[in-house]
Every structure is written in structure tokens, then in C-alpha cells.
């Protein structure tokens, strides 16, 4: 029996013939939540687009590897037409430009429900109001009549979530759903995503540059750097026991309300696709770099039951870490 909904293996992505992402491996179980974390240019959004079938709009394509949903091939963009709304739901980055400025919120919802045929026995309009209530909007009847510009960013993002789950998809994909929002609203939206996907037994792919955001709603997380997955494992374990130097640095650079100590930045900047080093792509910025790191690209190796790291010195780092050297 297979419990896997989505599986990516050795996925590579190119735009205009330039390979920007390579050897991405991860899987999403039915009803489970996976996070993808990395900084700008790490390839996390491209990976997300590959899964969402929207690479072609930016001139990109999957150049190698496999992408399977329920065992069916997804590397051909044409496969998506039947999946959108019903199997795959998307929550976009910027909620203001993701709603038609000339259409009422209610019209958006009714349009979607009618097309997906998910009104059920309660009628399209009632179903729309019900969806708005489910995403935590007060006075949903009133919101139905409003235009996008009359809502706050957080409210619009809730509407986008309502639209994404209108077809009861099996997989919800959220690409940086909170970047355009106030910090105070971010947490609510992430918690809503986590809660809804658990209740509806939907799988979730949550993309963010913030490990903290991802940790609130996911069970597994993939950390990406310069177009590769450098660490993958259960979210809790990764947060408590990061094995890749980049993940470590990312955690150290994260502001937090509890710890008031100094933030430690990561020295240097990520390499651009034109100037990727031959060896490990994090090597130029890594404090643990050694000769072997500069020769070959490290691949993901298991370091625990389901924890994988792409680093030649992962074992030593743990020891060094425990010895308090870092």
C-alpha cells in the first residue's frame, strides 16, 4: 500500500536553457505537510512552481527527473488542466494582485464553486459563505459583497485560501503565503493553513524563507541552497539538531522573541547559477570547509531514520557542535 501523494526524484529545472535547480528529492504523504525553506535564489520557488505546473509562465521547464502525483507523471504541463482546483489547490504569494480588482469576493467564490461543481447539497452561495466562515472571516455575507481593495492583506489571503480549498483538493501548495503581510497576521495565516489541512486531510507544501514559519505547520522540511536540497527531515528534528552548516547558520540568523542574544549573519552571498563552484555550493561561505568539499558536490546521505544531509562533514559537525566549539 502506498501512502505517498507526491514524489519528486532527481528533479531538475531550467529556464531558457540554464539549469537553476538540480537533484531535488522529496515526497509528500497523503494528508501530511512539507515545508521548503531557503533564501532568495535557492530554487525553492522554482521547485514550488514545478509542482504547481506554472513553470511555463516564466519560460521554464522540468529538464530531468520525475514528478509523480498519485503515481501519475506531472512533468508534462498539460497534465495539470484537470488537476487544478480539484486535486491541486494553490495559495499565491501576493493576495492583492491574485484577485480580479473588478470582481466582488463572492463572484470569485461562486465562479470557482460552479466550475468545480462542489456546491454540494447546500447551494453555491451558501457554500461560498460557508467557505469564508471556515477561513475565519467574520461577517462572511458582508465580505461576499466587497471588492478586493476593500479588504486588508490578511483578509485577502484568507479569501485566497478559501478559493484554494473550494474544490477540496488533495494537495494545497502555498508559495510564501505570508511575505506580503504584517508580522502579526503571518502567524494566524500559517496556523489557519495547518488547521485546515489537518481537518480536511489535505496535504500541504509550504514554501518560505523563514524556518520558523514553516515549523508551525509542517511535519517535514527540505532546506534548499543554490538550487539543491541540502537537508531534509522531520521539522522538529531539523530545528533541534540541524546537521548541515547552512541550516545551522539559518537558525542562528533567525530573530526570535524568546532569545534576545545577538543574531549571527551568514558571511558572504549565495553564488549565482553562472558562478556555481564545482564542489559543495555552500563551501565558499562555510566555516567547516575542507578540501573534499571543493572537489565534488555532496549528495543527500541518511543521518537518521528519515533525516538526510548533503554534507561531507555532517557527522563531525555534530561532534564539534556538542563540544561547544561553535
Amino acid at each position: 500500500m502506498t501512502n505517498t501523494l507526491l514524489e519528486a526524484s532527481e528533479l531538475a529545472i531550467e529556464i531558457d536553457g540554464r539549469q537553476l535547480v538540480s537533484s531535488v528529492n522529496f515526497s509528500v504523504g497523503k494528508g501530511s505537510a512539507v515545508g521548503i525553506v531557503g533564501e532568495t535564489g535557492s530554487g525553492k520557488s522554482l521547485t514550488c512552481r514545478a509542482v504547481a505546473g506554472s513553470l511555463s509562465t516564466i519560460g521554464g521547464r522540468i529538464s530531468a527527473g520525475n514528478l509523480k502525483l498519485n503515481g501519475k507523471d506531472l512533468t508534462d504541463p498539460k497534465a495539470y488542466a484537470k488537476l487544478y482546483g480539484r486535486i491541486i489547490g494553490l495559495v499565491p504569494q501576493n493576495s492583492l494582485s491574485a484577485l480580479n480588482p473588478l470582481m466582488r469576493i463572492g463572484t470569485h467564490l461562486i465562479e470557482t464553486i460552479k466550475i468545480l461543481g462542489t456546491g454540494g447539497g447546500i447551494g453555491t452561495k451558501d457554500r461560498a459563505i460557508d467557505l469564508l466562515a471556515r477561513v475565519g472571516l467574520h461577517k462572511p455575507e458582508h465580505v461576499m459583497k466587497q471588492y478586493p481593495h476593500q479588504l486588508s492583506g490578511g483578509m485577502r489571503q484568507r479569501v485566497m485560501i478559501a478559493l484554494a480549498i473550494a474544490g477540496r483538493p488533495e494537495l494545497l501548495i502555498a508559495d510564501e503565503p505570508t511575505t506580503a503581510l504584517d508580522v502579526s497576521v503571518q502567524k494566524d495565516i500559517i496556523e489557519l493553513l495547518g488547521q485546515l489541512t489537518r481537518e480536511e486531510n489535505m496535504a500541504l507544501i509550504l514554501v518560505s524563507h523563514d524556518l520558523g514559519v514553516v515549523s508551525a505547520a509542517t511535519e517535514n522540511v527540505a532546506v534548499m541552497y543554490s538550487g539543491m536540497v541540502v537537508e531534509y527531515g522531520p521539522t522538529k528534528e531539523l530545528l533541534q539538531n540541524p546537521r548541515h552548516p547552512y541550516t545551522k547558520a539559518l537558525l542562528a540568523a533567525r530573530p526570535s522573541l524568546e532569545h534576545t542574544g545577538r543574531l549571527i549573519g551568514i558571511p558572504g552571498t549565495p553564488a549565482t547559477p553562472d558562478a556555481w563552484p564545482t564542489g559543495c555550493r555552500f563551501a565558499p561561505r562555510c566555516q567547516f570547509v575542507q578540501d573534499s568539499c571543493l572537489q565534488n558536490v555532496p549528495t543527500l546521505q541518511s543521518v537518521g531514520s528519515s533525516h538526510q544531509v548533503a554534507c561531507y562533514r555532517a557527522d563531525e559537525i555534530e561532534i564539534l557542535d556538542n563540544a561547544g566549539e561553535v
Binding site: 529556464i15 531558457d16 516564466i58 519560460g59 521554464g60
Partner: peptide, 14 residues
């Protein structure tokens, strides 16, 4: 034809 210019950093290549 391609909209690669929308990708940050690639705009100048168009």
C-alpha cells in the same frame, strides 16, 4: 516570447 524577464536577475539578459 518567454517571460524570463520576470525572473529577478534575468531581466538584463533579455
Amino acid at each position: 516570447m518567454t517571460a524570463a524577464a520576470q525572473v529577478p536577475g534575468l531581466a538584463s539578459a533579455q
